[in-house]
Structures are given as structure tokens and as C-alpha cells.
Nucleic acid binder design. Structure first.
Length: 627
RNA sequence: CGGGGCGUAGCGCAGCCUGGUAGCGCACCUGCCUUGGGCGCAGGGGGUCGUAGGUUCGAAUCCUAUCGCCCCGACCA
């Protein structure tokens, strides 16, 4: 029998679609037994020196991927099989709520200008010119293209709701690609977009995605948490991320083991213990020589750190001049002395305006004092005005925006800088000694603080984001003019949602979650093969024949079978089998004389002796592909 | 963008300081041997030492520039 030939009885599904051209393929895989000796599975004994995280090391060692350039990878046979299985699951689940489209990755400048993001995306966007010199870019995400279709085609509320999705390659020129497939410049994303006539519709589309996402990740065998996320600066109302706990992750999540509260650190809050107020003394300027840090001041004045107020000086852009140059405005942030400010939270608090810390010259210019002694007293301040539901600031160019962290609201008799070298004020109280422009939650939650819902101590953990669902509202529909007529014949803006899944991140997260020193194991639902049959000695004809028979039987029962028929020593084959992510292994070897083989469960490293005639039944007890 | 590190055979590395015929382990090929956890023996193939200039009789090695990759930070729907 020729290797790779379609075995009689095994290829029951007729001509299988097996095009490898793009991510638009349907995910079908060839339905016949594969022979390792004929395949290209370049396993490595050692990982490349520049691989840091487990998934990166193993993806390379197991022959799944090879790097082409920074953050750009070729997916070899095993990786492609796994990706196809993942996208098949994604597709099956998404088809239950939406329709699949396939949109261009190559986008003209105009559509990105329509939304204003041609400029916003900056260097993160790959840009190129065509032969005529026209600007193009590679799509980082597809709000613009989807909204463009919607604005051109959708006319009536009767056509809503719509959920359109695609599985496409995305391009992002990350400043620092890293961690193998975790942070890359080219990757596959399932992105979907919902179009609704009203908020209630959006809520429903959002909830549908929430439910479908949970099913997808579960089917892929991932342990995940859904967390509250920062809805970004531009007015989205609800945002939820799906995260996987792993030390390879880059995001921090605060979670409560008791009530289930979980939130990205950019969003998380906590119950704070009350701070004892200092005795009222009235504002008093005190000489505090050489006390540039909060700890210095607190120690010098013998006051608790949390009665000290930290003043952080920033400049932010606030509008532009007639010529388009940005206008800068000073920004003072007031925090409890031992709290850390979260930049994402601040960004939200100032309506998404850009900001950066002041440099020393700016500090002197705006405060008339060197850093270390800054405070809110005596600063000229803007007025806050309501501006289409978003706070706008009115005032002269140098007027401050002063934002105070919620943890300081209502506090009295604080210590703060006096805007004068070597001097601080004691006895500062908001509303008496100074005013603030607004309050906002700006502080980072600290591990062990009380859950905002139930008060139990919060835990912090590192995570990778594998999915994100987001109520966009009218941001793109507004800027791009996507409107329909409602029941009353009135033109209304379509309300949108945006939902993403990182396909490769499902694979990498699975590996991060399920590996040991010898390799990794994937859920049978997404593993490139569900079972590998190891013929321990191919020179032994009886043994090889028995292996082939078992493999064929399993294949006919719906398993994706890899037959290791290589002329290698058993040790080599076992090492490779442990490495490449296949959840089940059948060793055909010494025990065959007694009519038995070994069934190995990779995750538990558990071996069970099973009679040859019982192999299928035994395996079905562990996992049934047709269940 | 700031800081650090590295580019020598497919992978992991030595050689560079102190210039003089390019090496080791693994992998690969051939033969023998072996067959339950990356065997053993023998023979063999493969590298313009990232690239370009320069110094020198002579450069992997010294100098300059440049490209690439990795890490930390910044940044990051």
C-alpha cells in the first residue's frame, strides 16, 4: 500500500476541499491516515536561542512554525491543520448568529480617512503606494470596510439587525513583536460587526457574541475568563475581554474568587479601607527641605503616606490651531500618596486626548516650582463644559485641568506641594483650598484589596487576550455616515458593535496552558491529529501490519490518525510524539505478543494496557470525535 | 523611540581580546550495528563567518557604516 494513498473505506466524504490558498478555505481536512515517514514535520531537539515563552519554543521545536521575519511566521503542516480546526469551530459557531464575508486586506486610503483613522493609526499601520502613487494600507481591523458596505447598502430599519463576520489576515506594524506567535505583525483574526437600529438591538448582538465566544473557547479546550475591559477613549459603552491566565501574558486582570468579579487592570476597581483624617489645622505652609518624594515628605512630617497627596504633572493636547498644530494644555492629576496611576484610566478621564508627562522646563513654566513640590493650590483652572456628552474644557491656553482620583474625594487636611522649592502645605481640603475640574477613578488596584462587589480580597494575574467584544455605538457610523430610515421615515444612525478573536492566540494559549518539559498537548478538537499510532519497530512486519490495522480502524471511526512508520528507534518516536501536541498515543510494541498495545493519555502521561480488539472502545471512552 | 545583547553549517555554540588554511555537539547522507525513552562504530556532505567599505602582505578576528534578530522600557482597539 502506498503511503498517503486514500484508504478504501476511510475516505467516505468524497472529494474533500483542501485548498491551502488563504484563510477563506472551509477548514476541511483530508480524511485519510497520514504516515509520518512521508510528512514534513521538522522537529528540533533544541529550541532556538531567541525563544522565550513555552509556546514559542514548542511551536518551533515541534515543527509547527518557522520565523520569516520579526513577528512574521510561516505555518507548517501541523500548525496549518490546527489553525484549520480552530477556524472550523469558529465558523460553525459564528454561522449560528451571523454571515461570513471576506473583505480585502489591501485598503485604499480614502476609506480610512473617512473614519479619521488614517492619521490616528500612525506607525502601527502598514502603508504602501500603488504604481500610480495612490496611498494604500494593509488592514489592521475592518470597521471601516464593513461600515463602508453598510453605508452604501443598508437603507431601511427592516434590513436590520445584521451580523457580518470574516476570518482574515490582519497586519499591524507592532513596535515590538515578541513572544513567538503571541505578539506578531501578521495574524489571523475572526472579526465581526453588528448593525442595529437601537441600543436594545446592540445589547442583543453583544449578548449573542458573548454566548458564542464562550462556546468557541470551550470547544477549543481553553480555560478562560471574561473580564470587564476598558471601553477605550472614544465612547464605547461596554467592553468585555476574554482572557487566558498565563505568565506569558501582558495584561493584568483583577479577579475575585468568591463572586466572580473580574476586570482588566485598566478598568478594575476595589473597595478601599477608610483613611483616618488628620486633625483639622487649617492650611499651613511648612518648610520641608529636600523632600522630593512622597515618602520623604510623609516621613519628614510624620504623617501617613495616604494623607499625602501626590501631584502628577502632564501636558495634554486639547484641540488644534487653525493651521492644524496641536494645542497643549497643562494637566494635574491628584492621587493618594501611595497609589499608582493607570494611564488607560486617565486617557478615559480626559476624553481620549493625548497626554505625556511634563518635562522639567514645562513644570517650572506652569508651576513656577521645581518638581517634587507641586500642588493644586493657586493654579488657574479651566471651566468644564458639556460638549456632545463629552467633557470639553474652556479657558485660556495655560489654564489647568485638575483631575482628582476618586480615592481622594471628600478627604480633608491633606498634605500637598506648595509650588515652591522645599515647601509643602498641610491641612489642604478640596473646595476650601482649591477646586478640581473633575473626579475620576485613576488608581491601579493592588492585589489583596477588597472586591468592589463582595469585598473579598482581589487577586491579580497575568493574562493573554484571546477575544474582545465591544459596543462601538455610533462612532464609525457617525463619522462615515451609515444611516437608515426608521419606522417613522426618519434618518437614524446605525448602532454598531465590534467583536474579535485572535485565532493563533487560541493555539498559543492552549500551549501555554498545557505543556511540560517534553512538549505540549492540545484538545482533541483542535490538535492536528487526535491520535498517533507508534509502530515501535517497522522492521518487524507483524508489528507494522498491526499498527496499520489499528490506525485504519481508528481513522474509519472518525479519528484523525497519524501513523508513525518511520524507521527510528522507539525512544526517538516517543520523544517526538510527546512533543507535537497530539493528545493520544498508541504504542504498538512488545505487548503485541500478548495481543495488547498501550494507550497513552498525553495530558496525564498515563499509560493503559489495552487488548488490540478493545482499542477503539477504549479510545471512545476517552474521546469520541463523533459524539 | 530610549537602553542592552546577538548575527560563524538546519539547530545549539566555540573561535574574535592577542589578525596567519573555519571548528565542536546535534541534525543530515552512506555502510555496519541496534530496536521501549533523542543507541553505537566508521566514513562523508554542507558555512563568500549578516552586508558593504576601510586598515593590513594577510581580516570571522581590528575600524567605519549599514541591515537583521532578541530582550527590557516606552508605545499598543
Amino acid at each position: 500500500m502506498r503511503a498517503g494513498a486514500v484508504k478504501a473505506g476511510a475516505a467516505a466524504s468524497g472529494p474533500t476541499c483542501y485548498n491551502q490558498l488563504s484563510t477563506s478555505q472551509d477548514g476541511n481536512l483530508p480524511n485519510f491516515m497520514q504516515r509520518w515517514s512521508k510528512l514534513f514535520i521538522p522537529t528540533l531537539r533544541e529550541a532556538p536561542a531567541d525563544a522565550e515563552v513555552a509556546s514559542h519554543k514548542f511551536l518551533v521545536r515541534a515543527g509547527y512554525v518557522r520565523q520569516l521575519a520579526a513577528g512574521i511566521y510561516s505555518y507548517l503542516f501541523l500548525a496549518q491543520r490546527t489553525i484549520l480546526k480552530i477556524t472550523k469551530i469558529v465558523r460553525e459557531e459564528m454561522d449560528s448568529i451571523g454571515q461570513e464575508l471576506y473583505l480585502p486586506a489591501l485598503n485604499p486610503r480614502e476609506v480610512w480617512e473617512a473614519s479619521g483613522r488614517w492619521d490616528v493609526m500612525g506607525d502601527n499601520m502598514f502603508r504602501l503606494k500603488d504604481r500610480k502613487g495612490a496611498d494604500l494600507c494593509l488592514g489592521m481591523t475592518h470597521e471601516e470596510i464593513m461600515t463602508d458596505i453598510a453605508r452604501k447598502e443598508l437603507r431601511s430599519y427592516k434590513q436590520l439587525p445584521q451580523i457580518w463576520y470574516q476570518i482574515q489576515t490582519k497586519f499591524r506594524d507592532e513596535p515590538r513583536p515578541k513572544s513567538g506567535l503571541l505578539r506578531v505583525r501578521q495574524f489571523t483574526m475572526k472579526d465581526s460587526y453588528s448593525f442595529d437600529i437601537d441600543r436594545a438591538g446592540l445589547d442583543k448582538s453583544f449578548d449573542l457574541h458573548d454566548a458564542v465566544y464562550r462556546r468557541i473557547f470551550k470547544r477549543c479546550g481553553l480555560e478562560f475568563v471574561a473580564v470587564e475591559a476598558d471601553s477605550g477613549s472614544m465612547g464605547g459603552s461596554q467592553s468585555q475581554e476574554f482572557m487566558v491566565y498565563t505568565d506569558a501574558g501582558e495584561d493584568l486582570v483583577a479577579s475575585c474568587g468568591k463572586c466572580g468579579y473580574a476586570a482588566n487592570l485598566e478598568k478594575a476597581t476595589s473597595k478601599l479601607e477608610a483613611v483616618e483624617e488628620l486633625a483639622a489645622s487649617g492650611r499651613e505652609k511648612v518648610y520641608t527641605p529636600g523632600t522630593k518624594t512622597i515618602d520623604d515628605v510623609a516621613a519628614f512630617l510624620k504623617t501617613p503616606v495616604n494623607n499625602n497627596m501626590k501631584s502628577l504633572a502632564y501636558v495634554m493636547t486639547d484641540g488644534a490651531t487653525a493651521t492644524g498644530a496641536p494645542v497643549f494644555r497643562p494637566l494635574l492629576v491628584l492621587m493618594r500618596g501611595n497609589d499608582q496611576m493607570n494611564e488607560a484610566k486617565l486617557s478615559g478621564a480626559i476624553g481620549g486626548r493625548e497626554f505625556r508627562p511634563m518635562v522639567e522646563e514645562e513644570i517650572v513654566k506652569y508651576f513656577g516650582s521645581p518638581a517634587g513640590y507641586l500642588g493644586p493650590v493657586g493654579l488657574k483652572q479651566v471651566k468644564t463644559v458639556e460638549n456632545k456628552g463629552k467633557a470639553g474644557y474652556a479657558g485660556d491656553a495655560g489654564d489647568f485641568v485638575i483631575i482628582m482620583d476618586e480615592a481622594l474625594r471628600g478627604r480633608k487636611n491633606l498634605v500637598g506641594g506648595a509650588n515652591e522649592l522645599d515647601h509643602h502645605f498641610t491641612g489642604l481640603t478640596v473646595g476650601v483650598d482649591f477646586e478640581v475640574t473633575s473626579y475620576a477613578d485613576l488608581r491601579n488596584v493592588v492585589e489583596g484589596e477588597g472586591c468592589p462587589r463582595c469585598g473579598e480580597p482581589l487577586k491579580l494575574g497575568k493574562t493573554v487576550e484571546i477575544g474582545h467584544i465591544f459596543k462601538l455605538g455610533t462612532k464609525y457610523a457617525d463619522s462615515m455616515g451609515a444611516k437608515v430610515l426608521d419606522k417613522d421615515g426618519k434618518e437614524v444612525t446605525i448602532i454598531m458593535g465590534s467583536y474579535g478573536i485572535g485565532v493563533e492566540r487560541i493555539l498559543t494559549s492552549c500551549i501555554e496552558q498545557n505543556h511540560d518539559e517534553n512538549g505540549f498537548w492540545l484538545s482533541p478538537s483542535i490538535a492536528p491529529f487526535t491520535v498517533v499510532v507508534v509502530a515501535t519497530n517497522v522492521k518487524d512486519a507483524t508489528l507494522l501490519e498491526a499498527s496499520e490495522k489499528i490506525a485504519a480502524e481508528l481513522e474509519a471511526a472518525g479519528y484523525d490518525v497519524l501513523l508513525d512508520d518511520r524507521d527510528e528507534r522507539p525512544g526517538v518516536k516517543f520523544k517526538d510524539a510527546d512533543l507535537v501536541g497530539i493528545p493520544f498515543r498508541i504504542n504498538v510494541g512488545k505487548l503485541l505478543a500478548d495481543g495488547k498495545v498501550e494507550v497513552v493519555e498525553r495530558d496525564k502521561s498515563q499509560k493503559t494496557e489495552v487488548a488490540v480488539a478493545e482499542v477503539l472502545a477504549h479510545l471512545r471512552g476517552l474521546y469520541d470525535p463523533r459524539a
